[in-house]
Structure formats: C-alpha cells, structure tokens
Write a protein that binds this DNA or RNA. Structure first.
Length: 194
DNA sequence: ATGACGATTTACT
DNA sequence: GTAAATCGTCATA
C-alpha cells in the first residue's frame, strides 16, 4: 500500500486532520525531464482559514496572491515571501473553504544530488529542513501555484509509511507572533521518529 | 504612487 | 544570540 498517489478524498478534510495525515507521506516532484525528486514529509502546520489570525485568508481575505486557498482540497498553494522565498501548502477541505497545510520539512528520499545542486549553500542536513528550503530543493515556485495534486504529474503526494497518529508531536507554529491568541495554538506537527 | 510588511534563511558578532 | 537580504503584494491615498 505504499507509493500510490493520494486522491481527492484524502485531502478533503479539515486542515488539522490533514496536517497530521500528511506526516510520513511522500512528496513527489517530477521535473520536465522526468527526473523525480522526493522526500518524506516530517513537519507540517495547519492554517485554519477565516478565524485564524495567522492565516493568509484570515477574515475571508481573498486576493490574487491567496486565491489558491479557495480551491478544492488537494490543490497546491504556493506563495512568495520575504522577497526571495517560496513556500508550498496543500489546500485542505472543500472548494471555497480557504484552509491549508504548510509543508515545513522533508527527509530527502530520491534525487538528493539534484537537491544539493539546487541548494548549493546548504549543508547535507539542511537540504529540506524548512519550508523555503524544500521549495528550493524540489524546484517549487510560482509555476506550480494552483496545480491539482490529485491529477498533476509534476507534483503530488504518494502514500508512504503510515503512522496512525503515533509519534506525532504538536507545538506552536513558527513565525506567526503577530497572530495574538492564534500564535500559541498547537497547530504545528512533527514526526517524532524520522 | 507610495510605503510597510512578511507562514524565512543565512551569515555574522 | 542578532540582523541583513530582498521584492511582490496589498492597503492607503
């Protein structure tokens, strides 16, 4: 039961459930030349949408930038921050419900040499140990924003070793100190045993 | 038209 | 530990 692409049904859940369910699954990026870059998802964050002060869709905010958050579960939301970094989210829930899961870290599986090339500055252990790092390593950028992970060959998630909720640590999210009472909610999830 | 600000990373004191 | 890098997007005017 490993290696199959996850389908729409998997993604159409609330972001907390999805954030936990994504841990241990395999993110697959297939380049135009057919080469696969893959990694095991070991850290995620849930963004709960309209009520969530840390979410780009807080208060129902809907702009050109965050439009992808309103797509059906299983689409990609890729955004640009700090003038230099891309971050990749998996959209959760249904169409018009702007929630998502930020993929924060991977353990590289396939295509490590290519990842190293893309992240020239990084040391081996830091290839995919942050949201913008993994985006750079897997060549994820604007061109993949809004793509459908349920049908795209360029980017999707495949079933990895299943965890059944065991070994998951929940902590507060990173970089959202501005979000007041939402900043300290435990919406960041890490796989304890990589 | 302008200005403030990031769901970060890296380098440096 | 602190701070610079760096620019698209959005709110305000």
């Amino acid at each position: 039961m490993t290696g199959e692409r996850l389908t729409r049904r998997f993604y159409r859940r609330d972001p907390v459930t999805l954030a936990k369910a994504l841990l241990g699954q395999i993110l697959v990026r297939r380049l135009d030349d057919g080469q696969a870059l893959t990694g095991r998802i070991v850290e995620t964050e849930a963004y709960l949408g309209i009520p969530d002060k840390a979410s780009h869709s807080y208060g129902g905010r809907r702009t050109k930038r965050n439009e992808s958050m309103y797509l059906d579960g299983g689409h990609a939301y890729v955004y640009f921050v700090y003038g230099m970094h891309w971050c990749f989210n998996v959209v959760s829930d249904r169409k018009e419900v702007p929630t998502a899961v930020l993929i924060r870290a991977l353990v590289p599986v396939q295509g490590v040499d290519q990842m190293k090339r893309r992240r020239r500055k990084a040391r081996e252990l830091e290839l995919c140990s942050g949201p913008a790092k993994l985006a750079q390593a897997l060549a994820i950028d604007r061109s993949l924003d809004g793509i459908d992970l349920a049908t795209s060959d360029s980017l999707y998630v495949a079933r990895g070793r299943t965890t059944q909720g065991a070994g998951i640590i929940a902590t507060s999210r990173v970089g959202v100190s501005y979000a007041e009472n939402w900043a300290k909610k435990r919406l960041r999830f890490l796989l304890e045993e990589p």
